[in-house]
């Protein structure tokens, strides 16, 4: 994290355990045990914000934000099962597709629009990111870094697409159709005229990589990345 965040460490620890306890569900495009990025995302959002979580899954982030930050939170989720579970738990979630349904939201209708671990599963990541920047005063995007050394190693040594705890799918059945590296993402942000306000890279253990490290280091050792963007 390039800036200190004011979140409640005790709540977040409980939350981390909650994440670890969740089984891998059909709604997530990456392994849920690795969702430590949600802690980082939550740390970026001040209390009482209006938040739209695109790809809200089973509502873990929304629930955390409502409990610890009293946000006005809404969710958009592709899986009907995930949506029904969220609504049954009192979350404000609708079924919809990030690729097609963001157009119905008004400009700057939210303080933050979150897209966590979903960008790589969209058909048109550029358009989706553009919509996030339109709908939210700020966008928070987290994604698995395809530039990570293990990914590179898998391709370089084995000549195979990587399959690991973080990316558990084979190439033929993965929902992740648009992987990118941290550097690719930074370039896309430039193209869309978005400013990176904060960025965080997490290593394989979910630990933040030092702030002083250069981009190439992040791109090599960061397994996941979280970006706070503004346009």
């Amino acid at each position: 994290m390039r800036q200190a965040s004011a979140h409640d460490p005790e709540k977040l620890q409980t939350f981390r355990i909650a994440i670890m306890r969740q089984e891998k569900g059909p709604t997530m495009s990456v392994n849920r045990a690795q969702r430590v990025d949600l802690e980082v995302v939550a740390g970026l959002i001040p209390p009482q914000s209006r938040v739209l979580d695109v790809g809200s899954g089973d509502g873990l982030l929304l629930e955390l934000l409502q409990e610890t930050k009293q946000v006005d939170g809404r969710g958009l989720e592709l899986s009907q099962r995930g949506v029904n579970e969220c609504v049954a738990r009192g979350l404000s979630v609708i079924q919809g597709d990030a690729d097609t349904d963001l157009e119905f939201y008004p400009d700057k209708g939210f303080d933050f629009v979150v897209l966590s671990q979903t960008l790589q599963a969209t058909r048109n990541p550029k358009l989706v990111l553009d919509e996030l920047l339109r709908i939210g005063n700020r966008a928070i995007v987290s994604f698995p870094n395809f530039g990570h050394w293990r990914v590179r190693l898998s391709l370089f040594v084995q000549g195979r697409m990587p399959v690991n705890d973080d990316l558990p799918y084979s190439w033929y059945d993965t929902p992740n159709i648009h992987f990118c590296t941290i550097r690719d993402f930074v370039n896309l942000c430039d193209e869309l005229g978005a400013t990176v306000e904060k960025a965080t890279a997490l290593d394989g253990n979910g630990q933040k990589i030092g702030l002083s490290m250069p981009w190439w280091f992040w791109n090599f050792f960061g397994q996941q990345a979280v970006f706070l963007l503004k346009r």
């Binding site: 009907q80 949506v83 029904n84 969220c86 609504v87 404000s92 609708i94 079924q95 008004p106 209708g109």
Partner: peptide, 8 residues
């Protein structure tokens, strides 16, 4: 800009 849930 309404708060809305929707289940099918």
């Amino acid at each position: 800009g309404a708060s809305v849930s929707f289940v099918e």
